[in-house]
Amino acid sequence: MKKNKLIYFEEFTDIHQAIEREKQLKNWHREWKLNLIRSINPEFKDLFLQL
């Protein structure tokens, strides 16, 4: 069974900003998303406990 991990997240205080960011990221290419994740979490560690 594959275990899911939280490898990237962003925090917002305004829901409208969060929705706009989600829309922006949905339009990104896969490689751009991976580069963003690597810039924050290069080892792809599970970040769930940081919430």
Rank of each mutant, 00 (worst) to 15 (best):
K2W: 03
E31A: 12
E20G: 12
F48W: 10
Y8S: 07
K2Q: 13
S39N: 07
E20S: 08
N4A: 14
K45T: 09
E11H: 09
Q17S: 14
A18L: 05
K23P: 02
E20T: 15
F48M: 13
F44L: 12
R30M: 09
S39K: 11
P42Y: 04
K26T: 06
F9C: 09
I7C: 04
D14K: 10
W32Q: 15
Q50S: 15
K3E: 13
R21K: 09
I40V: 12
W28Q: 15
D46V: 00
R21V: 03
L51M: 11
E22S: 06
N27D: 11
E11R: 10
N35K: 11
K2E: 08
K5W: 02
L51F: 06
N4D: 07
M1E: 07
L34H: 10
Q24L: 15
N27Y: 01
K3Q: 12
L36W: 00
H29M: 09
K5H: 01
K2H: 12
I40G: 09
E10T: 00
N35D: 05
L47Q: 01
N27V: 00
S39R: 07
L36V: 00
F44Y: 11
I7E: 04
K3L: 13
I7L: 08
N35R: 13
K5L: 07
F9K: 00
K5C: 04
L51H: 02
E22C: 09
L25H: 02
L34P: 04
M1V: 03
L47I: 02
L34F: 05
L51K: 05
I19G: 06
L25Y: 05
P42Q: 03
Q17A: 15
R30C: 05
I19Y: 04
R38Y: 09
L36Y: 01
N27W: 04
I40M: 10
S39W: 01
K2N: 13
I15D: 14
L47F: 01
I37R: 12
K2P: 11
E11Y: 03
I37V: 10
F48P: 06
E10K: 12
I40K: 04
K5V: 01
L25Q: 00
L34Y: 08
Y8D: 11
A18D: 00
L47D: 01
R21M: 11
K45L: 11
N4H: 06
Q24C: 13
P42H: 03
L49Q: 09
N27H: 14
E31L: 06
Y8W: 06
K33V: 07
H16Y: 07
K26H: 14
I15A: 14
K3G: 09
E20R: 13
L47A: 00
K45P: 02
L25D: 03
I19E: 11
K26F: 08
N35E: 11
E10Y: 04
L36K: 08
L36M: 08
P42D: 07
A18Q: 00
